[in-house]
Amino acid sequence: MTYATFSSTLTFPITHPSTASTTQAEPDWQALLSQHPRQVAPAVWPKVRHGRSLRSIIEIDQSTVRPTQTPHNETVDVTPHHDALVQELVDDEQLAAQLEVYAQANDYRAFRAEVATMHWAHHAPATLVRMIKLALSHAWLTLAETLIEQGREFFPHDPTIGQIARILAPPSITVVPGTAPQGLAASRMWVRTHATAYRGQWVAVYNGQLLGVAPSLDALRATIGPLEQPASTIITHIL
């Protein structure tokens, strides 16, 4: 008999949230496994939160899913549960595709409404990252922040979500001492007066004097060399 690794990846004993009290009552395995997958999913969230999406659990264990055995050596058939769960994942994948359509249409309301129904425990972190990027790309910033928070909750060890959270974190500000810039007003005046003569070029201006002109920033730096007063030298691309 082949025992399912599907069950061994879950945290035993499974306790449904409604029974997850201080009592140590044995779960009703058959009843639990016959539930709709969305109802079972909260029981596996702790596992998901420790770095594996439900999708990855299912995909890895799909070939050895039936029958399975509980820790109490009861053999149960999880096929209906598994198949239903796979269908859930397919449905959610379609939902993710639909979200992309809404984003393409710039339909914020539809996107926000659908994303609210997403059950992130059923998805790989990459799916959530995709949705965050869509929200960011449309400047739906509050929604993006909400998704990032959910990402940190469901996938706290995912490096990409961690990276996104760092990049989107509120900025910090420090004040450091410096020296007053020299001739900046004169340099601004030079740019204001002469810019149109250098369209498409990069220019460097210090103390009201043109230091150099070049078609690229790299070429400009090569032309002018190290700056004596970088904090007082305007460097700009003329549109």
Binding site: P171, S172, I173, T174, V175, V176, P177, G178, T179, A180, P181, A231
Partner: peptide, 8 residues
Amino acid sequence: SGNLMVID
């Protein structure tokens, strides 16, 4: 003053 307010 020349002081810089740096923002990440």
